[in-house]
Nucleic acid binder design. Structure first.
Lengths: 241, 241
DNA sequence: CGCTTGCTTGACTGCGTTCAATCATTGTGG
DNA sequence: CCACAATGATTGAACGCAGTCAAGCAAGCG
């Protein structure tokens, strides 16, 4: 499953955060320039991870958080009977590994969905720094709180919804997150497979496929293998909100 | 729904944390005695909340986290069409309100399931204190990480599982949490209604009822209105793990 | 004691799963 | 560059689990 990671390099970038194109989406959001420097100094950029490469593995010692600098990632756990269970898809600027904080090991696997670079931040150093830099502590609490909110929200959604609604909520949440990153966009890219989406939504791939086809026939969306476009925003809102 | 809260008192308890029976389950777990004192000083004990009383309301300004000192609580949000969606049941020692960190307002309601006391901890003071007391910061990160892990775990469970399995996982997770608190117990109390459990598991109340009946007929559990007892631990394990 | 509320049981319907076949895409070796 | 294999996505048909509606039962409370 995981391809060779022989070509993954560790790149030391001076002013990694200061000059990062996605810093406003990441931990540095509300840090003072002076504090940014100390954060930058403990960041190690790693990549390129190719599609299918593991960024970290469930059961592996937890040492670092990873900020997604480019690309996209899925995280998943394994059920007792060996089934993959996807816990989330992650976009540029998002933090990976938070579910391991306070744990010895990572509870999930993280795997690249496309060519991906991450910024590794050793957790021990990060929390040390957070003691010295109140802004960083606040930011970390904020990010953790947001993660909890999102997970709870996902829990609320996935349970009682019809297949079509689950799909539209998923697409809409992707759309919103893409908008934060790239502004108004026409096409929402889908770096993950249908199987992954279905798994994430708790549906059979066939059911997902049928739902997408129906939504296209109803003129709500236009969908290709690796992208979606919203056509009827009223219907999108009705189904996703 | 919410009863009068006229009788809810604010009690200032000196050495609130030092002398708390459930401190080992709460934030103070790994704090030094000296640090405990400062934490204690910002705790305000509130109660008694009676069954049905709101502890905080969705949309209310977020100011404080609440540690559950006695009793039990459910948290829930409202969907766009006004449906209650339960996000969690909370036992003694657990922290409420973490999903509001980094937000202006509480995203969920918290309501007492039985007579309940909480320890209110103003978030601003708590995070200030966490800057001074590294142990507290570490502990808070730990608790937040654990919450994320639990939510992700819940997400993994609820999606693809059959009704019977969902029920057993739920009962088992309650059992594990009760064991942490009260050691080996025979009876698992169920302070919440069937409707609440069904809602939490994404099932119709009728389906939950049928599942419980089947599990009883199969000799796996013994169940009364407000409690469950595990009879066949092998079957419990098979269904819940 | 009767009322109310919550829980359980029954019958039926329908959505999503499963199994199977076809179609589309991607990548590979000749 | 094309043929072909392999993988992923879609479509079809039948089944089964859980939802819905409705009625009966138990428990709690005035």
């Amino acid at each position: 499953m995981a391809k060779s990671s022989a070509n993954i390099r560790l790149v030391h970038v001076k002013r990694a955060c200061e000059e990062c194109a996605v810093r406003r989406l990441c931990l540095p959001t509300s840090l003072a320039e002076s504090d940014l420097e100390s954060l930058s100094s403990l960041v190690q950029r790693r990549g390129p991870f190719q599609k299918g490469d593991l960024i970290y593995r469930a059961g592996e010692d937890f040492n670092s958080l990873f900020a997604l600098q480019s690309g996209s990632v899925k995280t998943y756990g394994l059920t007792h009977d060996g089934e993959e269970q996807i816990t989330g898809f992650h976009l540029v600027g998002e933090l990976l590994g938070m579910d391991a904080i306070g744990n010895e090991v990572h509870p999930c696997n993280a795997i690249a969905l496309e060519t991906t670079w991450v910024c590794e931040m050793p957790y021990a150093k990060l929390s040390e720094l957070a003691e010295l830099v109140p802004g960083l502590q606040r930011e970390m609490f904020r990010v953790l709180g947001k993660e909890i909110r999102q997970d709870e929200h996902a829990l609320m959604l996935v349970r009682r919804l019809r297949a079509e609604q689950r799909v539209m909520r998923f697409l809409n949440s992707l759309y919103q997150r893409m908008r934060e990153r790239y502004g108004l966009i026409e096409e929402i890219p889908l770096p993950m497979s249908r199987e992954d989406i279905a798994n994430y939504l708790g549906l059979a791939p066939e059911t997902l496929s049928r739902a997408l086809t129906k939504l296209r026939n109803d003129g709500v969306i236009d969908v290709t293998t690796r992208s979606v476009r919203f056509l009827d925003m009223v219907a999108v809102c009705r189904l996703a909100c």
